[in-house]
Every structure is written in C-alpha cells, then in structure tokens.
C-alpha cells in the first residue's frame, strides 16, 4: 500500500497501464513535458517518450478526433481535455463518432478510448473552469461516464476505463485532486464500471451522490445521525452511465426516501433520471417525494457566488430533514 492523493493515484493507473500495454498512449494539451496542468500525467513523457505521451496542438476536436482514428486502428488512446468547460469544442467528435462507431459499422470497428476531463467547482477558478457538465455525456448512447470520488476508486476505475472496449468519459472532480490521501495498493486493481458503491449503510433515507458530492453527502449523513438520530444510507454512484439502477432501487425499497445531490444544474440533470428510475423501480416503497439538491439553472455564477449554488452540507441536511418529515 502507498498513500496517494487522487492526482498521484490517477498517475499510477496511467503508468501501470502504459507499462502493461504498448497500445495505450496519452494525448492532450500540456500532458507531456509539463505533465498536465494538474500533473496527472507527470513523468509519463520522461518514461515513455513523446510518441506515446503526445503534447498535441491546442485543438480539442482534433485531440478527440485523431484519438478516434487511433482507436479505429487498434490503439487505446487516453485523451486529456484540460477543463470540461472546453470539451464542447470536441463534443461533436465524442457524440458523432466515438459513441457511434461500433453501431455505425455493426461491430467492425469500435473506439476503445478514454477522454479524461477535470470538472466542478471549489477551486476558485474562472468561467469554463468550474462548471459541471456531466449531464451532456450521460445522455449519449454508446458512451460510458465514470465519476470517481476518491484516490483509490479513481485509480481502479481509470484502469477499467482504459481496458473497457467502449469509449469512456472520465470526469475528475478538481476539488478532490488534492483533497485527501488514501491507501492505494501498489499492485494494479480494477473496479467494475456500472456498479455503484454503498458508501455508508442506513435505514431511514438514501442520499445519492457522485464525485465531489459524495463527501458532502457523507458529512450530511453524520450531521443527521448526530443531531436527528437518523441513519442515512449514502450511495456513491461512481458510474453515471450505465446507471446502476439495481443498487439505487434496492436502497430506496429499504429506506423509502431519497435525496439526490449533484453539482450540475438541476433541470434535466442526472437527478431527474435517477428520480424517474426510482419512480419506476421503487414507487410503492416511496414515503416522500424524491428531492434534488443541485446547482441553480443559471449559465454561470462565478466563484465569488459559487457557494450559493453548489450543494453544501447544510442544504443536503435541510432537504433530508424535509424528506424525513414528509
């Protein structure tokens, strides 16, 4: 075991997968000599050279577009988009092509590739550097969307994403990069994509979160236990697409109450799909309306006002109390 933060844990996953498989390569802006603006690809350039750790020109569409071509040839590219706010410049390559090539060619070609991107607030950054845009990718058939919540699962899920035969969008919460360290095994480990984790068991209510919001949900659960004597179950989704409805429905069938927490704007966000899935799967068990604690539906708030929009512990606790009291 080694104690690593999320940046180092992701770096370890890339290093070990590149050592294991010569078809894995990394491309993006500043990922080579500089090691990435968040240092996730640090030292890979020195270890594997510029042909495998490519400092690409500054052009998101061609980073993902050329990666599609590499994947069609049989390579396994891992792209880094510097911030998820810039990924709209490659969204068409992701939606029009990476997600569709298997279907378009009826299995003759497929895109085994990963597009990593940092997302979310909490780092006092400018516009396009703080938003949460996971809902766009969650809606695209043919993609998988993974959002780890800590160093160990980030490393194990990135390993799975690289080995997955389908294109995986890998969202890394910037707020978690240096937030805490965890024991991470030196030997490679992989976690299955599409499986949620019960982060904490409970019987009174289910808090559903992913990425940086898992920590918020866990802290809210602690407040509810201490101040209300309520036991909240906390589910860490880890994968948004495909969504692990079985785990969600199983939990809410038990607790009868659910609050979904996410940083993405509320309307048409992941919380809507989760609430609809719970209505379909656990309607008769529900004791209260499903609540969503999410960002407000405005284009951008700026970090000076971010705390009023991004969910925090008091907002989650308040929503949970209303749900429990319903």
């Amino acid at each position: 075991m080694v104690k690593l933060n999320m940046v180092k844990a992701l770096n370890l996953a890339l290093l070990q997968e590149m050592e294991r498989d010569p078809d894995v390569l990394v491309l993006g802006e500043d990922v080579g000599v500089d090691g990435g603006v968040f240092r996730v690809t640090e030292d890979l350039h020195r270890t594997f050279g510029g042909k495998r750790v490519i400092d690409s020109p500054l052009a998101e569409a061609a980073i993902v577009g050329t990666a599609v071509g590499m994947a069609l040839y049989g390579l396994k590219p891992v792209c880094e988009i510097q911030f998820s706010g810039f990924a709209f410049q490659c969204f068409h390559q992701i939606e029009n092509h990476a997600a569709r090539y298997r279907q378009r060619t009826q299995g003759r070609f497929h895109c085994q590739m990963v597009v990593r991107m940092p997302y979310g607030g909490g780092v006092r950054a400018l516009e396009h550097h703080s938003e949460s845009e996971e809902q766009f990718y969650a809606q695209v058939p043919g993609l998988k969307l993974v959002v780890p919540s800590g160093p160990r699962n980030a490393r194990a899920l990135l390993v799975s994403a690289i080995r997955d035969p389908d294109p995986v969008i890998f969202f890394e919460a910037k707020a978690l990069y240096h937030a805490h360290k965890e024991e991470v095994p030196e030997e490679t480990e992989a976690l299955p994509i599409g499986q949620a984790r019960v982060a904490q068991e409970g019987r009174d209510l289910t808090l559903i979160a992913y990425g940086a919001m898992v920590r918020v949900a866990l802290e809210a659960a602690e407040v509810l236990r201490a101040e209300d004597g309520a036991e909240a179950e906390v589910i860490d989704l880890l994968t948004l697409s495909p969504l692990d409805r079985e785990t969600l429905v199983g939990s809410v069938a038990k607790t009868g109450r659910a609050v979904v927490v996410h940083e993405a704007p509320r309307s048409f966000g992941p919380g809507a799909e989760i609430a609809a899935s719970l209505m379909e799967g656990a309607f008769l068990a529900l004791e209260a309306p499903i609540r969503r604690v999410a960002a407000v539906d405005v284009p951008w708030v700026g970090f000076a006002r971010e705390k009023a929009s991004v969910p925090d512990v008091p907002r989650v606790v308040a929503a949970a109390r209303e749900t429990l009291a319903f």
Partner: peptide, 29 residues
C-alpha cells in the same frame, strides 16, 4: 455501414469534415 473484416475502409461519414481528424489519427497509428 459495415466494412468487410479485412477491409481498411471507414464507412460513410456525414457531418462535414469530421472524418479528417480520424484519417490523421489512423495515419499516426
């Protein structure tokens, strides 16, 4: 849209110019 197993052709691409980065990626590979 399915090329033969040994055929090194991509299928028809409709969004204009979006196939060109794929060609460059294939050539890189």
């Amino acid at each position: 849209g399915r090329p033969a197993p040994d055929q090194r052709d991509l299928p028809i691409t409709i969004p204009v110019a979006t196939q060109l980065p794929h060609a460059v990626g294939l050539a890189y590979a």
